[in-house]
Amino acid sequence: MQVVLFGICALLAIVGAVGVITARNPVYSALFLVLNFFSLAGLYLSLEAQFLAVTQVIVYAGAIVVLFLFVIMLLNLRPEDLPRFRLDRTGPLVVLLSLGLLLGVGMGIWSLLGASFPQDPQAQAVGTVESLGRALFGRYLVGFEVVAVLLLVAMIGSVMLAKRRFQ
């Protein structure tokens, strides 16, 4: 069951990521991004992180992608305004660079490739709301409060930026 869920979601996540990069129209990119976020939520579910799976759907697929789509509609780009790909000289170099990055990270996680997840009930209950809530409102309470201030600052900043007219 977990293998099937992992296979489908991993495949869909990669298809979504490739779609975001290759789609010419930003609206299609945003829709592929939704596919990517939803399949990541599926991957979280297969890792027994239920709370994060739900948060992923609400925050990313719900709020962030909707924000992207709103901005795309607000800008109202004509097809001839869409920037082209950067495929001249730098294209192959970039692809090579990313593959090198993948290789480097792959070598870094080589020793962990075969590690299997612990199956005792205590380790499986790590992703429940109870366990996360205890950590979030216990050890990490200061971080939680700071994040609240960060969101307030971001809200004020974005309103200021979008309102002001630069000369």
Binding site: Q2, V3, F6, A10, A13, I14, A17, V18, I21, N36, L43, S46, L47, S98, L99, L101, L102, V105, G106, I109, L112, L113, G114, A115, S116, F117
Partner: peptide, 17 residues
């Protein structure tokens, strides 16, 4: 059971994409 490496590889692939 999928080993942990499967998830890490997908994560690395998504990052390089």
């Amino acid at each position: 059971m999928v080993p942990a490496g499967g998830y890490l590889l997908v994560s690395a692939l998504l990052f390089s994409l």
